[in-house]
């Protein structure tokens, strides 16, 4: 169990850094979606299913959707 959580935390940090350095904003949005998704799983492991549900529904689904719309309306690549 411990090792699974450690791997998840590591993946989460990696994708958070990736979201920062990606120049293609669509990739950055997907990376931040991954961060939320892993956070949701971690919340579940920490025995907080309510928060996990909110994080999955809002952080992973809705926010990603809204970011994708925003990126489509503006520019896709960061200078």
């Amino acid at each position: 169990m411990e090792i699974v959580i450690l791997i998840l935390v590591f993946l989460m940090i990696v994708s958070a850094i990736a979201a920062l350095i990606f120049k293609d904003l669509m990739n950055a949005v997907i990376a931040s979606c991954v961060v939320s998704l892993i956070a949701a799983v971690l919340f579940y492991f920490l025995q907080a299913p309510d928060v996990a549900m909110a994080e999955a529904a809002i952080g992973a689904a809705l926010v990603t959707g809204i970011f994708v719309i925003a990126v489509k309306r503006t520019k896709r690549f960061e200078e």
Binding site: P49, D50, A52, M53, A54, I58, A61, L62, G65
Partner: peptide, 13 residues
């Protein structure tokens, strides 16, 4: 587990 906010967010998705 869950409630108004979570259910509402799922409906919105």
């Amino acid at each position: 587990p869950g409630g108004g906010f979570q259910g509402g967010a799922i409906i919105a998705s």
